[in-house]
């Protein structure tokens, strides 16, 4: 009777419970460290996408968190936002730094993603992120060749979907910032 249904269910249930119990402890133990690293990564990203900023502060507007960057004289030089959207496989989080007055993007940095390593994962690479350096606000077009106009984004070869998804996340981030900061004026 070693293989009776009851025995099978019992074995897997006990194993599952023990495993869940152990992992609950591991999770509790590692979570504070993981949160700390994420906060540090976020801080690095804010400074990376707001060049020239020496300090920043978090501002909440309409339920959204913005990062306002200030230079040494205390002048606001730009606004960054953490934008999230669906990627090719799971969510992508991108830090987008902008100058709402000049209506341009300073730069972006991908914080989290689950894209295919070797293909879509290149959205974290300098070559792809460079697409968005000093880009004017607007609707962008993803192209499969080097960009010729400032409104074009060069796709990663073999990862057009990932490239397009990040581009639309950036577009959404720009709209959020424009809504909160008016832009232009």
């Amino acid at each position: 009777m070693n293989n009776s249904t009851g025995r099978l269910i019992l074995t897997l249930t006990v194993l599952g419970l023990v495993s869940a119990f152990i992992l609950a402890f591991v999770f509790q133990w590692t979570l504070p460290y993981i949160i700390k690293h994420q906060a540090k990564a976020q801080e690095r990203a804010v400074f990376a996408v707001l060049p020239g900023a020496s300090d920043y502060k978090e501002v909440e507007k309409d339920g959204q968190v913005f990062f306002e960057g200030f230079d040494q004289s205390g002048k606001r030089i730009g606004v960054a936002i953490k934008a999230t959207g669906g990627g090719f496989q799971g969510m992508i989080t991108v830090m987008v730094g902008t100058d709402p007055e000049a209506e341009k993007v300073y730069g972006i940095q991908v914080l989290e993603h689950q894209e295919t390593p070797g293909l879509g994962a290149f959205i974290t690479g300098e070559k792809y992120e460079a697409n968005f350096i000093d880009k004017p606000f607007g609707d962008y077009k993803v192209v499969k060749r080097p960009a010729t106009s400032p409104y074009e984004v060069e796709a990663i070869s073999g990862a057009t979907i990932s490239s397009t998804k990040v581009t639309s996340i950036v577009e959404k981030a720009i709209k959020d910032i424009q809504r909160a900061y008016g832009g232009g004026a």
Binding site: L23, V26, T30, Y33, I34
Partner: peptide, 12 residues
């Protein structure tokens, strides 16, 4: 899963 958490916490 243990390794995954461990690496994320101590070797990000």
């Amino acid at each position: 899963t243990f390794v995954d958490y461990f690496l994320k916490a101590f070797f990000p």
